[in-house]
């Protein structure tokens, strides 16, 4: 009884996620288009530009799916936080001199590396590195914000994330198919 009701609920929420995501994503795409129209016309479709653009679109898609999922989920929060921090970083780098930004980036990279090493050491010391623990680590890396979760909530978030991601893929594919013809 409980499960069926839950299923119905998830179905309806899934649908609402879909509409929300599609709406938001299309709107952001339009915004992006308005921004980039002169650039695209001036520099005729180089590979780099396309790559940049696709990165941008990917980010838009992720941010819109995170917004659609709402702040209740840990993974969406993680995505939003990441994007925000990234945007902030971007803003700062654009504002300040390039040298400063480079040093900053290096520092951040170093920090990241140190963190990763630390994680590895800890994982190795506390429990023997079996296949499962490796996989769990990988799953944590894949699911946004998964590093801070315990296993239980990690699975929970993964389930929701998978659901939303498949929906996102669906919508994006629909849009792409529509526009490609």
């Amino acid at each position: 009884m409980d499960k069926t009701s839950k299923g119905i609920q998830t179905l309806s929420t899934h649908c609402s996620y879909k509409t929300k995501f599609a709406f938001r994503f299309l709107r952001s795409l339009m915004k992006l288009k308005k921004q980039h129209q002169p650039i695209s016309s001036s520099s005729s479709s180089s590979m780099e530009l396309i790559h940049k653009r696709s990165q941008r679109i990917k980010m838009l898609a992720y941010s819109s799916i995170a917004h659609a999922a709402g702040p209740r989920r840990a993974w969406s929060r993680a995505i939003l936080f990441k994007l925000q921090s990234r945007a902030r970083h971007h803003y700062f780098t654009r504002k300040r001199s390039s040298l400063d930004s480079k040093t900053k980036q290096k520092k951040i990279l170093k920090n990241k590396r140190v963190m990763r090493n630390h994680n590895i050491i800890r994982a190795g010391s506390t429990s023997r590195v079996t296949r499962e623990t490796k996989q769990m680590k990988k799953l944590r890396e894949i699911v946004p914000g998964g590093k801070e979760m315990d296993i239980c909530s990690l699975f929970d978030e993964t389930a929701h994330y998978v659901k939303c991601l498949s929906m996102q893929v669906q919508v994006m594919q629909a849009i792409a198919d529509r526009f490609s013809k």
């Binding site: 795409l29 992006l32 288009k33 396309i50 790559h51 653009r53 696709s54 990165q55 941008r56 679109i57 990917k58 838009l60 898609a61 992720y62 499962e132 996989q135 769990m136 990988k138 799953l139 894949i142 699911v143 993964t158 994330y161 998978v162 991601l165 498949s166 996102q168 893929v169 994006m172 594919q173 849009i175 792409a176 526009f179 490609s180």
Partner: peptide, 26 residues
């Protein structure tokens, strides 16, 4: 776990690919 990871990764790759496609399409 392997299956789940693969599935999530494939979905993420699809998102990437689709964004690329959308970029070109746009």
């Amino acid at each position: 776990l392997d299956e789940i990871i693969n599935y999530v990764q494939s979905l993420q790759r699809q998102v990437e690919f689709l964004s690329m496609k959308l970029a070109t399409v746009n």
